[in-house]
Design a protein around this nucleic acid. Structure first.
Lengths: 236, 236
DNA sequence: GGGGACTTACTGAGCGTTCGCTCAACGTAG
DNA sequence: CTACGTTGAGCGAACGCTCAGTAAGTCCCC
């Protein structure tokens, strides 16, 4: 069966910014939560079944095994980021600066809105080689997309970093990091976090205007300053 | 017993840059490797004992339980980073720019030279609340140190980021990220990676000179360009 | 519209294995 | 003779997973 969320693939403009409540098969939903709280190996099949409110065999009726749960979740997740990032890039057109900003925004929005799915990235180690290979290939593709944009921007003099590959990896790492600390009830909305990370990322790839302070992004805040990192809780 | 590495705390200048081969009690060493490869819950006590070449009870003679192995490893690790980072900051003196660069360099050097220890950071979730609290407190202290420096630099006009707290968190995330992908046999040495991350971090906190290209760091390379991310292997 | 064939979603029981951990006993070095 | 470091044997509990079986629905044929 492997019922998967409808994936929200309507092609309307800016659709990559909109997030309906996560709609996963109940088994996947509870597996995701359990894996987040206890990790893959720390979660038993009985635990997942218990959360769902069914027996263990019912779970095996829907999914081949425990591994398939994780693989399905991770693949669902990376494909959604990739789709949204591609949509953002398409919408931004050919200008490397706009593309870069759109891609970073889309990725960070995902990390915040789909935090629990995105956080499972820490569990790739628990994927069997074949599943991991598929996942890593998709993640590499995302990195490749971003790197192409940065290198084009560099050719046009928009980005000044002498080390685009390292810059892109760092940008992705810090975007991914959002899934580690973002909390819905924190001081910043997902949109604000995305905006801030666009600015930070521009600095990382060396966009002079951003660093000189010439790029003025609106920073609507729910708290006056910025220091309070909401819940620093180091992870699940 | 809980034999712990000699910690290399000689107070000579720049000592935070030097890394002797990791010298851990064999049990800790093999536990570290196993946790890296399979995660905490994915590793059995029997597996660790087997790697060490002793029986299970021998292991329990030296460490209270499996949890103590992880807690000891993580605490050893974070304390070492903290010591080195403090030493780097002390050596840099009062100038915020120099302090910031030194601290970032020291952290990245640690992530590369002590990759296997640093990578265990992904296992904090498996720490019991008490152990986790201690670990997180130390990590927060590190973040606080860096934030103070950045805010002082901001007051002096050295850093222009309007969001220092977010910038610092991002910098730390991207430093920590080094432990995920760095390989000793990759195209870059630990020192080169540290240097590059100093530059990237300067961009992230908005150091204008870095982004304008005025800060020229030497970039000795083992490979001509930079794109090749060595082994991207997503994790352990 | 009644009935056989088939499917979907699920259950209780339990398989064999492995888990973290313990205990009594042992050789050896000081 | 004592303390240290280790061992073989094994505890109870939990693990991932499978089995045979069943209630309820859907389908199409006549």
């Amino acid at each position: 069966m492997n019922t998967v969320p409808s994936q929200e693939t309507t092609p309307s403009a800016g659709h990559w910014r909109s997030y309906a409540p996560l709609d996963l098969h109940p088994i996947l939903m509870h597996a995701m939560r359990a894996f987040n709280e206890q990790g893959y190996h720390g979660t038993s099949v009985r635990d997942i079944a218990g959360r769902v409110g069914v027996t263990v065999p019912a779970l095996y009726y829907h999914y081949e095994n425990k591994q398939a749960l994780l693989a399905t979740l991770l693949e669902t997740s990376i494909k959604d980021v990739l789709d949204r990032c591609r949509a953002a890039a398409r919408e931004a057109g050919d200008d490397p600066l706009a593309r870069f900003c759109g891609m970073v925004e889309s990725i960070v929005l995902y990390m915040a809105h789909r935090r629990q799915l995105a956080f499972l990235d820490t569990e790739i180690r628990s994927l069997e080689p074949q599943n991991r290979a598929r996942y890593v290939a998709l993640r590499d593709y995302l990195e490749h997309m971003l790197l192409d944009t940065v290198e084009e921007g560099r050719a046009q003099g928009v980005f000044t970093t002498p080390i685009p590959a390292d810059a892109v990896r760092s940008v992705l790492v810090m975007c991914q990091g959002v899934a580690n600390w973002f909390r819905e009830d924190g001081p910043l909305t997902a949109e604000e976090v995305a905006e801030r990370h666009v600015l930070l990322s521009l600095g990382t790839v060396g966009h002079p205007a951003a660093v000189a302070g010439d790029v003025v992004l609106p920073f609507p805040r729910r708290t006056p300053a910025g220091r309070g990192a909401a819940s620093r809780a180091s992870s699940g």
